[in-house]
């Protein structure tokens, strides 16, 4: 009984922290993009103001939509995005529900928010939303390949080097950082995997150059077109949370180190140091693959984006896998 209460309290803490952090990162992103465009930009707390405003707005449900589906999907999107943080290492701590889920569950949970968004868009009966939802699905099918190659490479390598350990658990991934398992050409392979995972980032969170599903000037915000008020607030929060979640997934896979392992700190300071180090790592990932890229690029067409992901990025990931394999051959 006590254990259940403890887990519940802990997960509420993690979810609140994740929500606050992701909105803060979203504000920072808007501010930095504005600075790069020589503008002053909105205050960093702007996403909080926007969300607060959306909650007092009227919540319109279109007359010929499927109402329960239309209203349920924003909740599903936000809930599954937030649930991710219970199964992933977050803020330098091991995942709370480690015994109940692994990397494969996390990958499946990552699919739910875009899927919920697409279903909600189809349910809204708007032609713009329908176009947006189709684009979302096309894009999702093209980048999921890349992510599965990345995960397969990790599991394959770990099953060779540490045959006894469970290769898909975050515990193993944290205990044996991938860079230490390979050398020479294998390190190049891991770097290629990292680049291809980073290339997926903009498509995963629908930011430029891959904001094709909600192209504002083209299909009137696409999947979001009929959402207003509270539902829109939930969807915007889900997107922000997904961005933080994907950044922390990349951190957990490629940069699982904690700073407290290198500095001998008393436990409370170690927690704080790890937390700050986690923020620095996730922000660096976001800055490199989201903020810089979306400030510098224009929107791709959906067929261009799908071609880039299916051909080039997928090929890049496959080369990474091949290099890692080659490295294993050289070791043996």
């Amino acid at each position: 009984m006590f254990n259940i209460l403890h887990v519940a309290a802990h997960s509420i803490f993690i979810i609140t922290l994740a929500l606050l952090l992701s909105l803060l990162f979203n504000g920072l992103e808007r501010k930095l993009i504005a600075r790069m465009q020589a503008r002053i930009g909105p205050p960093i707390i702007q996403p909080f103001l926007d969300i607060k405003k959306l909650f007092i707005k009227e919540n319109i449900v279109p007359a010929n939509s499927i109402k329960w589906l239309f209203n349920a999907m924003p909740l599903v999107a936000l809930a599954s995005a937030l649930l991710l943080f219970l199964y992933m290492p977050f803020a330098g701590m091991p995942p709370l529900l480690q015994a109940h889920g692994d990397l494969i569950l996390v990958l499946y949970l990552f699919i739910i928010p875009p899927l919920a968004l697409a279903i909600g868009a189809f349910a809204s009966a708007s032609p713009y939303a329908s176009i947006g939802a189709q684009r979302e699905i096309v894009l999702m099918m093209s980048y999921e390949f890349v992510l599965s190659v990345v995960v397969i490479a990790f599991a394959w390598l770990l099953s060779f080097s540490h045959a006894g350990a469970y290769a898909f658990s975050f515990d193993t991934l944290t205990a044996y950082p991938i860079w230490n398992l390979v050398d020479g050409i294998g390190k190049l392979g891991v770097a290629l995997l990292l680049v291809s995972a980073l290339a997926v980032f903009p498509a995963k969170v629908a930011k430029l150059p891959a904001d094709i599903s909600e192209a504002k000037t083209e299909i009137a915000e696409g999947v979001l077109v009929e959402y207003s008020g509270r539902n829109l607030a939930l969807l915007l929060m889900a997107q922000a949370v997904q961005a933080l979640a994907f950044a922390s997934l990349i951190v957990a896979l490629f940069f699982p180190w904690n700073i407290s392992a290198f500095l001998a700190l008393p436990s409370i300071f170690a927690l704080i140091a790890d937390f700050i180090f986690f923020l620095v790592k996730t922000f660096a990932i976001m800055f490199a693959s989201l903020i810089l890229v979306s400030a510098a690029t224009a929107r791709l067409k959906v067929d261009q984006a799908a071609r880039i992901y299916i051909y080039y990025v997928f090929l890049l990931a496959l080369f990474g896998l091949a290099f890692i394999g080659l490295d294993r051959l050289l070791v043996m």
């Binding site: 909105p42 319109i60 915000e221 077109v225 009929e226 829109l232």
Partner: peptide, 21 residues
């Protein structure tokens, strides 16, 4: 545009009347 930058006041141009104030 950068010269006037209405976004610093939180003003944003949206693509759908459903999102607008």
């Amino acid at each position: 545009t950068p010269r006037y930058d209405a976004e610093r006041f939180g003003v944003k141009l949206v693509g759908s009347p459903r999102h607008a104030d």
